[in-house]
């Protein structure tokens, strides 16, 4: 069987707002403005911590989270989330999005009996997977109840300062 490594020639960073940045491999340490290339350097020192030096300016950076190919980066005080995709995984995304069936509804339920402390979303709010939607006090602790999907909040049954039983529906989310 063929044994050579499949060469990945390009990578794409897709922002959460669906902007696409493509980079050829091997990755160059320059970013182009107009026709000129400017060097990008990652540096770190005692005074500034880690930063990127570009066009004679320092930009603070922090890697907030990374899981799989997903990176949350705080860059110059603004957080960005990127999915880094290979040409194949990008194609796969296109293929699968065509196959995607009807939109489903996800019910966020109370995982245990307790008291609703706060509802963090409103009807019509966009929520991301992992985003807290309700704060439930149970076992004398405040628990963040998170959305398990990306979607749109369509209805809210949780009311602050009310008690709920296990599996009571708190929030309904239309999966997107």
């Amino acid at each position: 069987m063929p044994n050579e490594k499949p060469q990945i020639k390009k990578l794409y960073a897709l922002s959460s707002e669906n902007r696409k940045f493509s980079f050829s491999l091997p990755l160059k340490h320059t970013i182009k403005v107009g026709k000129r290339n400017y060097d990008v350097q990652i540096k770190s020192d005692e005074k500034y911590g880690t930063y990127i030096l570009w066009k004679n300016r320092r930009y603070p950076l922090e890697i907030v989270k990374s899981s799989q190919n997903k990176y949350e980066i705080l860059f110059n005080d603004i957080s960005y989330t990127f999915n880094v995709e290979t040409p194949f995984s990008l194609q796969r995304m296109k293929v699968l999005s065509k196959h995607k069936g009807k939109q489903e509804k996800e019910l966020v339920k109370a995982p245990m009996p307790g008291k609703i402390i706060d509802v963090l979303v409103r009807e019509g709010s966009q929520v991301l997977k992992g985003e807290p939607v309700v704060i439930l006090e149970a076992m004398k602790m405040q628990n963040e109840i998170q959305s398990t999907v990306n979607g749109l909040v369509t209805s809210i049954s949780a009311r602050p300062n009310t008690n709920v039983m296990k599996d009571d529906i708190l929030v309904e989310i239309k999966v997107e």
Partner: peptide, 23 residues
């Protein structure tokens, strides 16, 4: 590929260090 899947060969190639897999 049209199903969004790789072939068995492609998977093996991705997994192993280049040139080391013996079938």
């Amino acid at each position: 590929h049209s199903k969004g899947k790789l072939t068995a060969h492609e998977r093996i190639t991705l997994l192993f260090d280049p040139g080391t897999f013996e079938e």
